[in-house]
C-alpha cells in the first residue's frame, strides 16, 4: 500500500515539477496518505444533485473594452529574471517532451 503510494507520489511530484529527496518522499507519502484517508469523509455526503461551486459570487460577464495601454518597460520586466540574453529570458536546453 505504502509502496504503491510512493509511486503515486513520484508521479505527482513529476507533474508538479518538484524534486523530492528520499526522506521527503517517505515523509510525504505517509502524511498524504493519512490526510487523504481523513478526506474520505467527504464521500459520506450525497452530492449527486449538487452543482459544483467554482465562484462564490453571482458574477458573470466581467469583461474589459479592447483598449491598449502602455506595456511595462522591458528593464522592469526583465529585472527579476535569473538569466537574460538579448533582452530575452534565457533557459537551458529543452530536452524532448517537457
Amino acid at each position: 500500500m505504502i509502496r504503491n503510494f510512493i509511486q503515486q507520489l513520484r508521479k505527482t511530484a513529476h507533474l508538479a515539477r518538484l524534486n523530492l529527496t528520499e526522506e521527503e518522499e517517505e515523509l510525504y507519502s505517509k502524511q498524504l496518505e493519512e490526510i487523504l484517508n481523513y478526506f474520505q469523509k467527504l464521500q459520506e455526503l450525497d452530492t449527486s444533485n449538487v452543482e459544483p461551486m467554482a465562484h462564490v459570487l453571482p458574477l458573470n460577464n466581467v469583461w474589459r473594452e479592447d483598449e491598449i495601454k502602455e506595456s511595462m518597460e522591458k528593464e522592469l520586466i526583465l529585472k527579476n529574471a535569473p538569466e537574460i540574453e538579448n533582452n530575452c529570458f534565457k533557459v537551458p536546453k529543452i530536452v524532448k517532451n517537457i
Binding site: R64, D66, E67, I68, K69, S71, M72, K74, I77, L78, N86, N87, C88, F89
Partner: peptide
Amino acid sequence: TKSKMFCSCSTDHENAPPNTLVC
C-alpha cells in the same frame, strides 16, 4: 483585437523588439 486577451498590452507584435509588449 487591438489588445491582448487578459491585459491591455498591444497585440501588434510583428516587428516589436523582444519583451517590449509585456506587462
